[in-house]
Design a protein around this nucleic acid. Structure first.
Lengths: 118, 118
DNA sequence: TAGTTGTTATAGAGGAACTATAACACTTAC
DNA sequence: GTAAGTGTTATAGTTCCTCTATAACAACTA
């Protein structure tokens, strides 16, 4: 489990943390059923407040990627498998966008727009 | 040109406006070379501040979707054609994600993550 | 020349993000 | 049972972004 954040990024810290977890899941380095490091451990490792990590975890929970219960910690949900499956297709779309001169920001916005239409 | 915003949405107003323009472009209702309505007109129509509209336009410029020059207005760039081409593929990815139980937020985040990796 | 456009500057109100501390409820391991 | 570890909730303060408001400026068009 490698979680990275860039304090100079314009993206919110909790978004960066959530993004790190998604990256691990999509890459298959974090499979369904596995347990995430405790929020307190992550907070200490990244030198960030506990609540910031918890907000990231809750965001992932809202997305259905992890399940959380107090006392037990955060566990990657079964939906993670679907997430990993989508990875290759997402990467293909990114590559295709790149050949057309469309950057990451624009593509992500386009996908979000497409999702809102359906 | 139909620009809509939802004041109750959690999304930033300038993001909603930019999203509206992307939607028009992706749907082919706004083609390369066409001119966007002036920021002042949009601001008045949506009952929003001029700067909020300009921030949306500047965001689209950073994405390469429009070109702006003072006195002349904002014009849809040639890259818009590529944008429209990507629309169908983006929609297909969204549909596939939906069958796997992955929502819009999670998918958009995944695409952004995939883009950052490459 | 007159009108329209994006650009830049300044200032303020409101809300979100992040931090900090503390207590609580549930689970696991001993 | 007890202790340690977990997410959950509460409160409060600081900082930063969003949005508004006003004004002037520079480039283009008719």
């Amino acid at each position: 489990m490698l979680l990275r954040i860039d304090p100079d990024s314009s993206a919110a810290l909790y978004d960066q943390i959530a993004g790190s977890v998604r990256r691990e899941v999509a890459a298959g380095r974090l499979a369904a059923g596995e347990r995430l490091p405790s929020a307190r451990d992550v907070a200490e490792a990244l030198d960030v407040n506990l609540h910031t990590v918890l907000k990231a975890y809750q965001l992932l929970r809202d997305e259905g990627l992890v399940e959380m219960r107090r006392g037990r910690g955060a566990v990657v949900s079964a939906r993670a498998d679907a997430f990993a499956e989508l990875r290759a297709e997402a990467a293909a779309l990114v590559a295709r966008a790149r050949t057309l001169g469309v950057g990451a920001d624009a593509l992500a916005a386009l996908v979000r727009t497409a999702a809102e239409e359906a």
